[in-house]
């Protein structure tokens, strides 16, 4: 009897029991809340896509209306622009095809990619031109990097480094950047987070390029 009491099971039965009960509780919470959380994320993605492809300056003072696949951007100055955003079947967690509704031409692509950062998973939206030749912008959907260091990846001054960079070569950061034509300046004290962002962008761009190349000829010109 005393051997059982002194064994790992005898000592840790309460922790095992609690772990089981709390695990079941968390599973129930996840099942109940995850559809709602995913809806919130989807709404955020739809709101951010115009800024990634049209440029952040177009959205300054602009109002955005979302109706299904149609997103109307009414800038402070100039004509409203109506975009159609269609999610494509993709091996990436999501790939969106964005076109202007009226002229009917393809504006670009936005893909959702993720990988491990320093603290937890970093999730990004990566905007690409219609021919996938250049990056139009990145947006950080989700991160839990170190406050005041790694969480600087959400700041516009860091994200601005990626705008307009050609996608013919993978991005490099920090000490390796001397070999690149378009170096990405790492955030001070957050090299791991900066490298993770570059890796996610590189992986996502590579995946999108392969998937779009596999599409039937001429399909990219569809409205």
């Amino acid at each position: 009897m005393s051997r059982l009491r002194d064994s790992y099971l005898g000592q840790g039965w309460l922790i095992l029991l609690l772990a089981g009960a709390f695990g079941a509780l968390l599973a129930a919470v996840h099942l109940k809340l995850s559809p709602r959380i995913e809806d919130n994320i989807q709404a955020e993605i739809t709101r951010e896509i115009p800024g990634l492809l049209l440029g952040a300056e177009v959205l300054e003072g602009a109002s955005i209306k979302i109706e299904g696949d149609l997103v109307t951007v009414e800038p402070a100055v100039g004509e409203p622009r109506v975009l159609t955003i269609v999610e494509q079947p993709s091996e990436a967690s999501a790939l969106y095809r964005v076109a202007e509704r009226d002229p009917g031409h393809l504006l670009g692509w936005v893909a959702r990619g993720q990988d491990h950062g320093y603290a937890d998973v970093i999730e990004l939206l990566v905007g690409l031109t219609a021919d996938t030749g250049r990056i139009t912008g990145i947006y950080v959907l989700n991160q839990k990097e170190t406050p005041a260091l790694g969480d600087g990846i959400v700041r516009s001054d860091f994200r601005r480094h990626f705008v307009g960079i050609p996608t013919d070569r993978p991005l490099v950061v920090g000490a390796d950047a001397a070999q690149s034509r378009y170096p990405i300046q790492a955030l001070t004290g957050a090299t791991v987070s900066s490298r993770s962002v570059c890796k996610i962008v590189n992986d996502t761009v590579a995946l999108v390029k392969v998937e779009i190349a596999e599409e039937p000829e001429g399909s990219n010109a569809r409205p």
Partner: peptide, 17 residues
């Protein structure tokens, strides 16, 4: 273990609502 469970619930609830 107890604190982590309820923090996760609070975090997910905030993300949902």
């Amino acid at each position: 273990l107890t604190i982590a469970t309820f923090v996760t619930i609070a975090d997910r609830t905030l993300a949902a609502f």
